[in-house]
Structure formats: C-alpha cells, structure tokens
Amino acid sequence: MIWSNEFALEILPVLLRGLWVTVQLTLLGFLISLVVGLVVAVVRFAKIPVLSQLCTLYVLFMRGTPLLVQAYFAFYVLPAYGVTLSSFATGVVVIGLNYSAYTAEVYRSGIEGVATGQWEAATALSLPPRSTWNRVVLPQAVRSVIPVLGNYLIQMFKDSAVLSAIGVIDLMRAANTLGSSSFRYLEPFTLAGLLFLIISYTASIGVKRLEHRYAPAH
C-alpha cells in the first residue's frame, strides 16, 4: 500500500476538473471581494455615522469567525429564510464576503497612503466628491495595493478548499471522492497538495514581479 504511479495518472484528469472549479470559485469570489471591499473601505473612510460603524463591525466579524462556520451558516441557515443558493453559488458569495473584510483593509491602507496634497488639490480645483474619489484618490490608492491584493487572491485560492465541506465539487472534494471510492487517500491528497503548491507558488512569483512594477518610486 505505497504510492502507485498508475493510480495517480488515472485520477489526475478528475483532479484537474476539480481544480478548474476551484479556479472559477476563486476568481468569482475575488471579484465580489474587490467590489464589496472597496465599498466598505470608502464608507469607513468617509466616516458616515452608523453606516461606518456597521462597516467596522462587519470587517471585525468577518475576520473574527471561521470561513467554515460562515459557509455552514450561509448554506444551512439562509434557506430557512427563503434564500436558497447552490453550494457553488453559496461558496462564491461566502468566500467573496469573507475576503472583502481583508480587501477593505487593504484599500484603506491604500487610501490613507494617498498624499494629503492630492486631497487639497482636488478641493482647490473644487472637484465634486465623486470625481475626487473616482479620478484622484482611488486610481492612486488601488494601484499601490495591487500586489497585496494579488497575495490575497492566492490565499483565497488555497482557502477555497474549505468550501468542499458544503458540497462544492472542487479540487478538495474531488480528492476526497476519489479517495473514498478507491479507498486510497495517499495519491489523491498528495496530488491535490501538489496542484495547490504548483499554482500558488507560480502565482506568488508573479506577485513578486508586480511588487517591483508597482513599487513606490523612492
């Protein structure tokens, strides 16, 4: 009962299909986290009464509770209130909202990093707040945090495996199913680990490049 190359080759296509689901899940979730995170960051920065505090609580809560339990909650509790999504859709929304709490903090650091002179200049030009945000602050803020966001994307890719627990047929689920139908867990889980490693390691090298590209001029 040691490693079998033959079995490993046989299950690889199934694992790759699972990997493809993992990639889709991650990218869609990332999209949600980028949008929601930005909204949360701007609301918090703008210090709108009540709304800002709610956003702070949201960030704290999302970061203070396990992704797995959040996923269980969304999957098992929400249908009782009439919200029934498939496990894939639930997974995308849960991981997207979970990471929006992190991206919100990333954006915040980016917004705070925009020099005060930029705000002053915008005021001096009497730009409306909307244009100040859209044309001056956000383009600079987002640009400076692109590498950090890249790292969160990689982190999300790895974390998405947790969502197999609510039935998303991703790489982890595929490995588990293969393991249980063949009664061998060694090859499926070793290969799943390797696939995760290859992709996230390659991606992290890519992010390092981004860091150089978007590094501040000084």
């Binding site: 588990n176 199913t177 393991g179 249980s180 009664f183 061998r184």
Partner: peptide
Amino acid sequence: PYESMIPGLKA
C-alpha cells in the same frame, strides 16, 4: 463521514 470510514480504518 461514510466516505472516510474505510480509508480511516485502513489508516
């Protein structure tokens, strides 16, 4: 879980 029973027994 049922799916882990036999692998877990063997492990």
